[in-house]
Design a protein around this nucleic acid. Sequence first.
DNA 1: AAAATTTAGCTTGTATACAAGTATACAATC
DNA 2: GATTGTATACTTGTATACAAGCTAAATTTT
Lengths: 233, 233
Amino acid sequence: MTPAARPSLIEIAPHTTRPSALPDHVYAVLKHRILSCAMKPDERLVEKKLCDELRVSRTPLREALNRLSHEELVAFQPHAGYRVAPITLDGFRNLIELRAIVEAQAAALAAERATPEDIAELRAFATLPYDPDDERGFVDYCRANARFHLRVVRTTHNSMLENIVMSALDLYQRPTYLRIGRQLDPKNPSAKHRAITEAIAKHDASAAHEVMLQHVRGGGERILAALKAANYH
Amino acid sequence: MTPAARPSLIEIAPHTTRPSALPDHVYAVLKHRILSCAMKPDERLVEKKLCDELRVSRTPLREALNRLSHEELVAFQPHAGYRVAPITLDGFRNLIELRAIVEAQAAALAAERATPEDIAELRAFATLPYDPDDERGFVDYCRANARFHLRVVRTTHNSMLENIVMSALDLYQRPTYLRIGRQLDPKNPSAKHRAITEAIAKHDASAAHEVMLQHVRGGGERILAALKAANYH
DNA sequence: AAAATTTAGCTTGTATACAAGTATACAATC
DNA sequence: GATTGTATACTTGTATACAAGCTAAATTTT
């Protein structure tokens, strides 16, 4: 059966140059649910149920699940099914380390390569809307934050770095959305973003590297501490 | 039909925690063919033909092709099929840049974290068999080289870094196997490997970083020059 | 009562039929 | 002769039937 009325809103771009309508749609929907913790870590993902709900057959659904499992957003065991990937301290530490390495170096390369257009766009993206009391505002804030960080790597013109940072930011979203440590955010990161941007604008690679490094590590440490406090392992 | 007699040799490990026999097998076989250039860049991959040859139905085959396309080893266009991914100068430049960033930093972290066992294994892996005149010896050499580089990242105990370097080394193999620039290798890289190992043994992070950086860039530049000479774009 | 074992149900794994879209070859037209 | 339109063959996209394997509950045994 060709799906008649399916949820039509693609909320998250598929990160791929492989636009195959149905699997991409399912991928986007599931990914959004996982990242936003609408589907909780360790929750089971049963193919049949998701098929019925999304009005799709198992083939495109499985394609989406496979993709998610390779991105480590869902865990898989043969013949035992899929689960939403758990959030672990070690996993998050590794993630911070990865982001620190790649994004700091990307900022340095960006400083070497940025054109005036790059700099203008970075400036436009640097200042984030931030209203910790507003639920909706918090989501917007997260999106804007990711947009800035992606814009920095994009300035390197290295699509491989870009893809790695995209995946990393995705994985990073989950602990953030959990609201864990939300209120611990001491100040709006816009200041750091502006500092990074100005270092890039001055083509000061080592400054860009240093500020980005501290920024990523700082944010990571805060969330890590909150995860520990919330008793994650 | 359950496949009765299929080629049984898995030549390349699947890089994943997702051991599902048939798709993994197909993935491994195709990947080996692509990396070894038995299947040439831009060659078309028609599902039916591969199914008949590998004695597998389309479902597991497509799962393997999807994985390969996300790893950028095969290119895909909706309704138009799969092709072996082309080798491009820009792609290779990006790859070198990625390896340089991640592996250099990984070497530094390895220097901070290496245990005596790590160091012993690194020493064992550092010296490579190298006989540029022997076809078989060349393949062994490539494998041993990858093994050393992987052992360095593994010392960081960061599985994300490990996965990235694994993929990167895979992509790197293809230009190497093309034999392009093979004879340009000025000397056996064992010396560099030993230098990296000794820096790690001394827990000298910045030396490890520096030597690895030069090593990766140097090797990359040589192959890049050869690709240019061979008129790749 | 606790442990082990069997069995029934459920979930995933694979194969295949059918639908939809694409490309190529051939013909008609400019 | 080049170009465009069209039909046909081929390839991929999706759905579904059936096989294989796991989980967990119920029954038996100690």
